[in-house]
Computed example of a mutant assay.
Amino acid sequence: MNFKSENLTNFVCDIFKVVGISDEDSYTVADSLVAANLRGVDSHGVTRVPIYVKRLKEGATNPNPDVKIAKESDATLLIDGDDGMGQIVSREAMKLGVAKAKKSGGVHIGVTRSSHFGAGAYYVKRGVEEDMITFAMSNAPSTMAPWGGIQPYFGTNPYAYGVPAGKYDPIILDMATSVVARGKIIMAAQNGSDIPEGWAIDQEGRPTTDSQAALDGSVLPFGGPKGYGISLMIDIMSGVLTGAGFGPHINNIYGDYDKPQNVGHFFQLMDINQFMPAKEYKQRIDQMIEEIKSTPAAEGVEEIFVPGEIENKTEQTRLENGIDLDKEVYEGLKQVGKECGVNIEDYENVNQKT
Rank of each mutant, 00 (worst) to 15 (best):
F3L: 12
E6K: 15
G20Q: 10
D25K: 04
V29Q: 00
N37S: 01
R39E: 08
R39K: 15
R39T: 03
S43F: 05
V46K: 07
V46D: 06
V46S: 08
R48A: 06
V49P: 04
Y52P: 10
Y52E: 05
Y52D: 08
K57F: 10
A60I: 04
T61N: 02
P65W: 05
I69N: 08
K71W: 04
K71G: 02
K71D: 07
E72V: 07
D83P: 10
K95W: 11
L96V: 00
L96K: 08
A99Q: 15
H108Y: 14
S114P: 03
A119V: 00
G120T: 03
G120A: 11
K125S: 13
E130F: 07
M132H: 07
T134E: 10
P141S: 07
P141H: 00
T143D: 10
M144A: 05
A145V: 01
A145T: 06
G148M: 02
G148C: 09
F154I: 03
Y159D: 10
Y161S: 02
G162C: 05
G162L: 05
G162N: 06
P164V: 01
I171A: 08
I172V: 13
I172P: 03
D174F: 03
A176I: 01
T177F: 04
V179H: 04
K184T: 03
Q190M: 12
S193R: 14
I195L: 06
E197P: 06
I201Q: 00
D202T: 01
P207A: 11
P207L: 13
D210T: 04
D210M: 07
S211F: 05
Q212M: 12
D216G: 07
Y228Q: 03
Y228W: 10
G229D: 01
I230P: 06
M233A: 13
I234K: 08
I234C: 03
M237Y: 09
G239D: 03
V240A: 14
G245L: 03
H249F: 14
I253D: 08
Y257I: 04
V263H: 06
L269G: 02
K279Y: 13
E280R: 10
Y281S: 11
K282W: 05
Q283V: 04
Q283G: 14
R284K: 14
Q287F: 15
M288G: 06
I289E: 05
E290R: 13
E290N: 12
K293G: 09
S294T: 13
S294F: 05
P296C: 11
A298D: 15
G308D: 05
G308E: 09
R318P: 01
L319I: 13
I323C: 00
K327F: 12
E328P: 10
G332M: 06
V336I: 13
E339S: 11
C340T: 08
C340R: 03
G341A: 06
E345H: 13
N349R: 13
Q352H: 14
K353L: 12
